[in-house]
């Protein structure tokens, strides 16, 4: 799978293009709880959030729970999945544990929810990069056939976060290397679905920094300095109302 940006004259570093191509393959393949077609639909629905009038009204409301209406969906995903995608894309800073519990109670399993979160987040990285360089969305890949693995990380438990996490001391051999380099909570968040976690972080580090460079504040690993990187990072996080 090849990623191109024909509307841009920028030369984009090979490692970033490579990670983007790997994510497109990852997205199209059957996952842990979701089929390839469902995973592609999630990425498509995430794009469709931009055209959802209810999301705009809800984001402007004093409380996201103060108004009720229907999201404008662009796929045939179930309404509870559409709600998950639209809320995470449009207003992530106002999600709550009660909302996540409601999602699970509606029939989306913890594992499918975590997989969906990872796919939305990674798709947002792809689409935001394209927008950031002034390019249209990269066409989504075609889904690959096959069944989800339904792998459950046996050490995953809900304690520190709203979703189950496989803590470093609870990793089994079947989980593989979940924490290469660092195990901060942001690295643990998707750990109960190892395939999703690895897919997300493969692209995340290509955009930001490899884990081993994160604590090295005096090393310039990119073409902008570390404090310039962190300024963009902090401002972006604040705009989202992200407390982490």
């Amino acid at each position: 799978m090849t990623i191109n940006y024909p509307q841009s004259d920028l030369s984009i570093r090979d490692d970033l293009i490579g990670a983007q191509a790997r994510f497109w393959e990852h997205l199209a393949a059957p996952g842990t709880w979701l089929s390839g077609a469902e995973r592609i639909a999630i990425a498509a629905e995430a794009r469709g959030v931009r055209n959802c009038d209810f999301c705009k009204i809800q984001k402007d409301a004093l409380s996201p729970n103060s108004i009720q209406d229907t999201h404008q969906s662009s796929t045939d995903l179930a309404p509870n999945m559409v709600e998950v995608i639209h809320r995470i894309v449009s207003d992530p800073g106002r999600l709550t544990e009660a909302w996540v519990r409601g999602v699970v109670d509606s029939g989306i399993s913890d594992g499918a929810y975590v997989e969906t979160v990872g796919l939305i987040a990674t798709a947002m990285v792809m689409d935001t990069f394209a927008a950031g360089i002034g390019h249209d969305d990269v066409p989504l890949p075609a889904p690959a056939a096959g069944e989800p693995s339904r792998y459950t990380s046996s050490g995953a438990k809900r304690a520190a976060a709203w979703v189950p996490i496989t803590e470093p001391e609870d990793i089994t051999e079947e989980d593989g290397d979940l924490y290469p380099g660092r195990s901060a909570y942001i690295q643990r968040a998707l750990s109960s679905v190892p395939d999703t976690k690895r897919g997300y972080w493969d692209l995340a580090v290509a955009n930001y920094l490899p884990a081993e460079h994160m604590p090295n504040f005096d090393t310039d690993f990119r073409a902008i300095s570390r404090n310039q990187i962190e300024l963009i990072a902090a401002r972006t996080s604040a705009l989202h109302g992200c407390a982490y």
């Binding site: 995470i88 894309v89 992530p92 800073g93 999600l95 544990e97 996540v100 975590v114 979160v117 990872g118 939305i120 987040a121 990674t122 947002m124 990285v125 935001t128 520190a160 976060a161 709203w162 979703v163 996490i165 909570y185 942001i186 643990r188 968040a189 998707l190 997300y200 692209l203 995340a204 955009n207 930001y208 963009i232 990072a233 972006t236 996080s237 989202h240 992200c242 407390a243 982490y244």
Partner: peptide, 13 residues
């Protein structure tokens, strides 16, 4: 960071 914020805020770490 459009991805990091969503991972953090949707999982409640």
């Amino acid at each position: 960071f459009h991805g990091f914020v969503r991972v953090a805020d949707a999982t409640g770490i």
